[in-house]
Design a protein around this nucleic acid. Structure first.
Lengths: 148, 148
DNA sequence: CTACCAATGTTGGCATCTCCAACATAGGCG
DNA sequence: CGCCTATGTTGGAGATGCCAACATTGGTAG
């Protein structure tokens, strides 16, 4: 996976945040995709985000999962169907609000999440490799501000 | 355009560089897409990257353009065909290396590029809005290091 | 209480970006 | 001369992100 062999990056681009962000995303997404691929269960970023969110806040509605993960309602539906067919989550109708589904993480779902965590952490290391520890802290700080 | 109303971002995600990068990319890409859309010529990021690169280094082969922009050869071909049909670039066979195309920016292509530059610059401002001037410099510096 | 409005889950579709495989052609190099 | 590589092209694929439309369900304003 050769993410942009640096040919000759034009001046107009090389300092533009949108360009830097898009290049960093390309690299980071490729590394993550390779990690998920190596894992072999056919899961992708959307599934991981959903598992993480369920572990953090427990049973949630699909709409909440969408807001928490930044995934569109329709894509939440599709990803959950896949997770459900793998036995990693369960869906049931909320008895108090019949229009709502309550999604629950299964024990197998938690196991899978913990295994993926290891891979994801290794990927962070690979992405941040060029930075010192202090620079990494700065990076996380600045990126967090950017998303406020 | 509501890019991730911050529902409740899980702790596992909120400090992970890959997560931050993907969220920043989603926002930045959406802003850029809106800008291209408003511009109305049906151009997208690939076209802009190619125009910029041609302006910077003059006539180039498609393979060089691909390396410079991080765009796959096949996608360069498609995007150039669109730019050519709009009269923004010209393609001709290199007389010295008949397997190679030399791509040239037309005057209309330059005009279009300059107009897009204005929009793209405004977008940088929108993306970096939450940061101070000093933080913006830090951000560009750290992101550049990340891509070395 | 009723009528309207909002939220939810679902289906289906679309655009962009990225990458890959295969092919024919043309040059370079042993 | 024969092999290997670079180039341009075609066709395909997957991941991400969005949007529209719909039926259902709840809440709320009148």
């Amino acid at each position: 996976m050769p993410p942009h062999r640096p040919g000759r990056t034009p001046d107009r681009l090389k300092d533009r945040p949108t360009w830097l962000i898009s290049r960093a995303y390309a690299r980071s997404a490729a590394l993550l995709a390779a990690g998920f691929e190596a894992d072999g269960k056919g899961l992708r970023g959307y599934h991981y985000r959903l598992l993480v969110t369920l572990e953090q806040w427990g049973p949630s509605s699909q709409a909440d999962l969408g807001r928490d993960t930044g995934i569109d309602r329709s894509d939440v539906t599709a990803a959950l169907t896949e997770l459900e067919s793998l036995g990693l989550v369960e869906r049931r109708v909320d008895p108090d609000h019949k229009r709502r589904n309550i999604v629950t993480l299964t024990p197998q779902g938690l196991d899978t999440l913990l295994a993926l965590d290891v891979m994801v952490d290794r990927t962070q290391e690979a992405v941040l490799a060029p930075l010192t520890a202090a620079q990494r802290r700065q990076f996380v700080d600045l990126m967090s501000r950017l998303l406020d």
